[in-house]
Design a protein around this nucleic acid. Sequence first.
DNA 1: ATGAAAGCGCTAACAA
DNA 2: TTGTTAGCGCTTTCAT
Lengths: 342, 342
Amino acid sequence: MVTIKDVARMAKVSPSTVSRVISDSKSISEPTKERVRAAMKELGYHPNVIARSLIRRSSQALGVVLSRSAESAFSNPFFAEILRGISKVTQRCQYSLVLATAENYKEEARQCLQMVMERRVDGVIILASRVNDQLIENLSETEHPFVVVGRVDGDQHHYAVNNDNIQAAYSAVRHLLNLGHKKVAFLNGPVEYTFCQDRYQGYVMAFREFGLTVDERYICHAENLHADGYKYSQQLLQLKPQPTAIFVADDLMVIGAYRAIKEAKLVIPDDIAVVGFNDDAFTNLLDPPLTTIRIPIYEMGKAAAETIIAVLNGDQVIPPQRILSSELLIRDSCGAKRLVRV
Amino acid sequence: MVTIKDVARMAKVSPSTVSRVISDSKSISEPTKERVRAAMKELGYHPNVIARSLIRRSSQALGVVLSRSAESAFSNPFFAEILRGISKVTQRCQYSLVLATAENYKEEARQCLQMVMERRVDGVIILASRVNDQLIENLSETEHPFVVVGRVDGDQHHYAVNNDNIQAAYSAVRHLLNLGHKKVAFLNGPVEYTFCQDRYQGYVMAFREFGLTVDERYICHAENLHADGYKYSQQLLQLKPQPTAIFVADDLMVIGAYRAIKEAKLVIPDDIAVVGFNDDAFTNLLDPPLTTIRIPIYEMGKAAAETIIAVLNGDQVIPPQRILSSELLIRDSCGAKRLVRV
DNA sequence: ATGAAAGCGCTAACAA
DNA sequence: TTGTTAGCGCTTTCAT
């Protein structure tokens, strides 16, 4: 391996001079710089980031925790989109991106904690947070820099980037109630996620506003966003009186919902209306095209990465929590057709 | 920061003893081990991987190059799926995963090369290879370990994992020719990718077998798999005589193709048949559900990661090239309905 | 079974 | 402007 010493020897300078040339220090004369650079080129020298990280006490790397089993995370367009936003920023800021993945959340949390404690990464981005999130608690205790995409349960002292889940769910449900629906079922995601709690809250808000009481039988919590849409939709359709609309908290579950509805010989939107969440690319291809909430996922990824990098630079991040707003995209699954800003 | 020295002091041993306890050396007595472990726990000690990497000359990290602009890569389900396979293996083998992303291939290649030359990663997985691939050439010259997902143009001395593109395209086109189609258009991807070349070859093979001559007007190469499906399908539909079938080299382009076909007031499969490639999750939701090629993407990701890790361990990898087989999934876009193994 | 010492490749005082 | 020196936190001979 070519080291700084080899370059120094060849250019007939000391190793520290070579180091200064690498960082383009202005206290080195042009002729020397050129001689050193020539030597670097001739020898095919490349700085060893590991050695540099050791002495600088910084790896210039960011960790990303998917916060779900890798299985379900990778199949959700949300993660692709948020990773795209994150990577956009990391490449601009010269950080590298380390992915933490595992079969389950506990293992993933362990991996993430290890990553940061072992100094493999300088900070961590957590995608989605849970009620009583152990990882977030540990990260706070050990004082490692992190930023959460989502709302942190309880305490407000964390850096976080989120979308307006309450507001978004509220406007989705209000849209249905405005269309005259009374029996609006809610196919929500796993209760342990704060975003599901928030969407539930938005649902309740809309009901309150319309002077309607929430019937808990019409609300269910899927465990797996990919697999459970079908099963729970079937259950909801069994209810008497049958719901005339379903608000689905993740577009991934809409696929199963559509199937269950069609198998029950119901027609969307005539017999039953559907609203989704996320505006995944495929929702426009469904029959009928889905009315859904668009959230600025890419922008959230960018904001999260910018935040953690600012924190690492010791910059003030004000405010520590940012909430990006979403919009209701009205297509054909409820019977209307226009665009409304939330 | 808690270091090995702090632990040593507390446990009243030397730093080297602590190091031996970390690696669970059998030359340390049980009582000492326990004393040291207690000290580690009390101090909240965690080994610094950076320091370890420096002395071991190994970062225990793998780099992944998307081989496209991050933009188009992340939106393609192929990458999510292959990353899932890769991460499955890296987590099992205690490697971390570093993503290289950029706006364009040149920049991405630079980043990848840098990653490995700077010793940030021990080896690299390249997703998709090009004709005359500069990155692969550089990696070979500098003798850095890498494995390619796809077929490497020219030389056969690289480690690679691929699917049977020629065979797969051949069977897709043969399926159409068997159904009586003569004017089978081919909406292929960018010519610079070897997988597109292979799929073209399979197309030609099928034509040969049926004693038909290939009309180059019926073949086009999209530059962007996401955006160009619509445009090129429109062009193909303009041809006289109009094609009665289109073989589309990536499911992502099928979305645009369906739209162009429907806008031309043609009915799938009655007026025109369509075959896709990849079996992306949404293809089953299209109207009509798409007949497409299923390739074992997840398995390819696993195989690629296993290969590079074996190489890094100095194990023999035989054979250096592996080809996984695909199958034609017959749904409704050609008018038939059954499953055929290629 | 344990310790002392050297050194991985780099940076950054402190000198000169 | 440049060189000397002392580490960063760890592992690994070589002693004892």
